[in-house]
Design a protein around this nucleic acid. Structure first.
Lengths: 196, 196
DNA sequence: GGACTGACAGATATTGAAATCTGTCATCTG
DNA sequence: CAGATGACAGATTTCAATATCTGTCAGTCC
């Protein structure tokens, strides 16, 4: 296949990088590989991304954003009950992570490594997610269901508390028998803590 | 120094292993090193521990038990207010981990690696800790301060929720500015969730 | 002239041969 | 005889030579 005919765009480079990562894994995926997959010299890739790290971070951001968008819908449904929305949001986050980890473990491991050393993109992602959580908590306070001093702080606490169910470090525990029960128990505890 | 005069006991081997680990780190600490430090052949070490993994696990168990004992006192003080005890227990756990991680980062990293592949000893340690937590929760239920269906489940949820403040994976975040505040916020949330 | 190339220096990764380690066991020693 | 030894086979690690990669840039090609 001669994909050389198309103009070289950041978008095409990102797609090719994803493919190379999928094939080779994080340790052996090189910029030269990406260039080869696109039929260009690696110098051209460096015209669009200053460093290999920047390229990887862009791919990581893309991957993280997919989850963010999915959850934004739940967070934004201001017409629905805040407590139910909170539960649904947390369940959706867990389900999304679990599905990715279980469906294609190698690819998940690859992205876990990338997330591990993508500094900026990850903190932005976490900030975005806790922001969504804060929105829900704030709605709950407004509706009188929740009672907290600072929604942002509470949201952050909830996010940290549920780390075991969304942090890739714990992925291997997501398929054990009792997890769903443990998840429910934790969410119950947290929701009770937020209630007025 | 000729420590060869003493009889070779499991205890002495464990002490020597700790020393070797402290000096060489987890990757380069070998059974031969331990034997050399004791002035015996490595075959003798294998008389007391069937494999290198077993030796490492025994050392790890020892290390973990030190924390367990410290916390057992708080958990066992049945005369005091359960809510205060719970807060104190969690704070003590966090403080102990933080002190170890901050005081001697290399040794802490060494033990973090050990903990990583010591299967049995770690689950036993976690079971012991959640057991202590469950005791406190149970006392709270008895006293009417807490209201939960199953103290064991609730204790497990509390332990998981506070992972960010005791799991070595997160050690690098324990020295950031706002941590203590975040810790307090989370504990408040959890205590509120447990209350009657 | 702006997008692309390819040669280059220094950094990093791979490779295979040599050294070391793990775990076993026949043998020794008190 | 209980406890310790050291030689051994196979697995793992180390080390240094070699190959590849990253990031730059002067020069090429529409």
């Amino acid at each position: 296949m001669p994909p050389t005919s198309e103009t070289l765009t950041a978008e095409r480079i990102l797609a090719a990088t994803e493919e190379v990562l999928r094939r080779h894994g994080p340790a052996k995926a090189t910029v030269v590989d990406v260039a080869r997959a696109l039929g260009v010299s690696h110098g051209s890739v460096y015209r669009h991304f200053r460093t290999k790290a920047a390229l990887r971070e862009a791919v990581t951001k893309r991957w993280l954003d997919r989850t963010t968008e999915l959850l934004a819908e739940i967070a934004g449904a201001t017409d629905r009950d805040p407590e139910a929305r909170l539960r649904e949001w947390l369940a959706a986050l867990f389900a999304a992570k679990r599905r990715k980890a279980g469906g294609d473990p190698e690819l998940f491991a690859t992205y876990s490594v990338l997330v591990g050393d993508a500094g900026e993109a990850v903190s932005a992602h976490i900030a975005e997610l806790t922001g969504q959580l804060a929105t829900i908590v704030r709605d709950g306070v407004q509706a009188g269901t929740f009672a907290v001093d600072d929604p942002q702080t509470a949201a952050h606490a909830v996010f940290q508390a549920t780390a075991r169910f969304h942090d890739p470090n714990y992925a291997k525990e997501w398929e054990r028998p009792g997890v769903l029960g443990e998840f429910e128990a934790l969410v119950d505890l947290l929701v009770r803590g937020l209630r007025a």
